[in-house]
Computed example of a mutant assay.
Amino acid sequence: MNITFSWQGFAIASAIFAAMTAILGKIGVANINTNLATLIRTIVILMVTMAIVTARSEWQKPTGSTWIGWTCLIASGVTTGLSWLCYFRALQMGPVSVVAPIDKLSVALVMIAGWILLGEPMTIKGVVGGGLVVLGSLILLF
């Protein structure tokens, strides 16, 4: 079975999995140390990713990347881990219906970084949509 998604399809799938992650994570961290929960989650992600790479025969020597690319991938791993640690702790302490939307302030931050750092086009649709994300998160936060 060969399923082909556009970037939009993958983005929607990501949102669905992220929603499931929040609910399952909230239940999962109810009676466990959040740092240990993050470690367990990370091991599972490693195993699933290795299985996918193996199933798709995508193991290869990583070539063609620059030191900047490697540095960014490593930094991305560090920031992902820190994000997960904070997210699970927030889920343990607060309601998932508020924690998850506030976590999505990252959407607006990524939009701003895309415009400033990556030179992506700033559109009125992007500004309004990002502003609504921020407004919604602030309403939930306060």
Rank of each mutant, 00 (worst) to 15 (best):
M1T: 11
N2L: 13
S6N: 03
S6D: 07
Q8V: 15
F10C: 05
A11E: 01
A11G: 00
I12V: 13
F17P: 02
A19C: 05
M20C: 13
T21W: 07
T21D: 13
I23P: 06
I23L: 06
G25L: 05
K26P: 00
I27D: 02
V29A: 01
I32H: 05
A37H: 02
T42M: 09
L46M: 14
V48R: 03
V48Q: 11
V48A: 11
V48L: 14
T49H: 10
A51E: 08
T54D: 11
A55F: 14
A55S: 13
K61D: 06
K61V: 15
P62V: 14
P62T: 08
T63A: 04
G64Y: 08
S65T: 15
T66K: 02
W67G: 14
G69S: 10
G69D: 06
G69W: 08
G69F: 11
W70C: 03
W70P: 01
W70T: 07
T71Q: 12
L73E: 08
S76R: 03
G77K: 06
G77D: 00
G77L: 01
T79K: 07
T79A: 04
G81D: 03
S83W: 09
L85N: 05
L85C: 04
C86Y: 05
Y87M: 05
Y87A: 03
F88L: 13
R89K: 13
A90R: 08
A90D: 01
L91G: 01
Q92I: 00
Q92D: 01
P95I: 09
V96S: 02
V98I: 09
V98R: 06
V99F: 01
A100V: 06
P101A: 05
P101Y: 00
L105I: 07
V110M: 12
V110D: 12
A113L: 14
A113N: 06
W115S: 02
I116H: 06
L117I: 11
L117G: 08
E120A: 02
P121Y: 13
P121I: 14
M122H: 11
K125D: 07
G126Q: 00
G126N: 00
V128R: 02
L132H: 03
V133S: 04
V133N: 03
L135M: 13
S137N: 04
S137C: 14
I139L: 11
L140V: 07
